[in-house]
Structures are given as structure tokens and as C-alpha cells.
Amino acid sequence: MSRVVYIAANTFREAVRDRVLYNLIAFAVLLSGAAILVGQISIDIERLVVVNLGLTAVSLFGVVIAIFIGIGLVSKEMEKRTLYTVLSRPVRRWEFIVGKFFGLAGTLLVNTFFMAVGVFAALLYVSHKFQSSDAWILVALFFIVLQLLILCSLALLFSSFSSPLLSAVFAFSLFVIGSFAEDLRLFARMTRGLTHGLAATAAYLVPNFSALNVIGQVAHEQPISWHLIACNTAYALAYSTMAICGAVLIFERRNLK
């Protein structure tokens, strides 16, 4: 078990030293700053624009970072054969996958934290003080982190059997499809017979990102129910576990060329 921790720590260290990451974070923070300018043009909705634009930037850049470091760090290990030296030690393959996941999760958490600081700074600049409803923004950020965890586990799953480019395409497609997951389930409910079986399977297998996006709600200072928070958290954990188990099952059998 301690080896999982070592692998996670090393992954985290490797990831946070990459300069590309800082560029992306800087860009997201910049976008939150730009929200201030946009907000000034339209009267009375500065706060709304800052929250909407800021959280959207956090979410989208988070997605890009999650997919690229998720895939990059694993495929690089295979391509550059560092994996060979790791696996020739008393390290089990599942320990490698699980360790990678936790390392990446830690990286994403730290990234989101810095981007969130940017959003709150912009918010403070516009409204001069925080109010109690701003706490819901934290919930929205938490949901974004959950979304990133799911994506990251999917990135790991795909890179356990596919090339980096294809993995990125798969992961990004699933992000887009997952954002329409609710529509997909509505659609599945309306179909019959074989189509129904297929559509329902697909609808329940794709990650459900619709319920994780509450940016619009918190921008309008609407509260979020604890039930939703609990369900979303449990769902994200279950889904990530599922993807990682899949990755482990594939990776255990994989020939490392």
C-alpha cells in the first residue's frame, strides 16, 4: 500500500513541475479577471458575469488539464519506458494505476484551488465583500472537482489500452456526451425494444456531468440541496472507482511494447 503513496507522490511532483500546467492555470485566472471587464460593461450583473465566466473557465481549463495530464503522464511512462523500471520492482500493476490516479487527483485539486482563488479574488474586487450565498460557489467548485476526478479516471482507463491521441479524443467526446447525459437518458426512456436496451445501457454508462454543473444556479445565488451534494459525491466516487477497476483489469493483461 505504501507503494501506492510513493507513486502518487511522485506523479504529483512530476505534474506540478510541468510549466504547461502553470500557463493553463494562469490563463484561467486571467479569464476570471477579464470577467470583471465584461461585468463593468453590463450594469448590475457584474457578480453574475464574474461567477459564470470564472467558474466556466475553471471547469473548462480543468477539463483540459485533467485530460492532458491524465493521458500524458501515463502514456509518457510507457513511451519512454520508465514504466519498465517501475514494474521491474516489487510493484504490482494495480498499484501503479491507483497510485497514478491519486497523484493526478491531488494535482487537479491543487490546480482547482489556484483557479478558484482567482475567481474569488475577482468576486471580491466586484462586490467588495463576501456574502453568505458565496458559499454555494464552493459547492459548484466541489462539483467541478468531482467532474475532473471522473474525467481523470476515464483518461487513465483509455490510456491503459489506447494511444495518447485516441485517448484524448475518447475522453473529450465523453466529456461532451456526458454534459448531455440527461437528454440521453430522456431519449432512452422514450425508445422501445432493442433500441431501448442499447440506448439505456449507453445512457447509464456515460458519465453524468449534467447534474454536476450547477454554475448557472449558483450564479443566481440559488441554494443547492444537500441531497444533490450527497448523491453527486457518491456518484463521482462510484463512477471513478468503476473506471479505475476497468483500467486495472485491462492493464493487468496488457503487453507493454
Partner: peptide, 25 residues
């Protein structure tokens, strides 16, 4: 084991790298 044309984690120092492998061993 030393693989052919080894490459290691770009952003680690030699010492950190050896530390990592020592931990794994």
C-alpha cells in the same frame, strides 16, 4: 533492470529519481 535507451521523469532531479526507485524497492 536497465531498459534500452532509458529515459526518466523530466522534472525530477537525479537524487529524487533514485529516492523514488529506492522507495519502490
Amino acid at each position: 533492470f536497465l531498459p534500452e535507451q532509458p529515459y526518466f521523469y523530466d522534472y525530477l532531479t537525479a537524487k529524487e529519481l533514485l529516492e523514488y526507485y529506492a522507495q519502490l524497492s
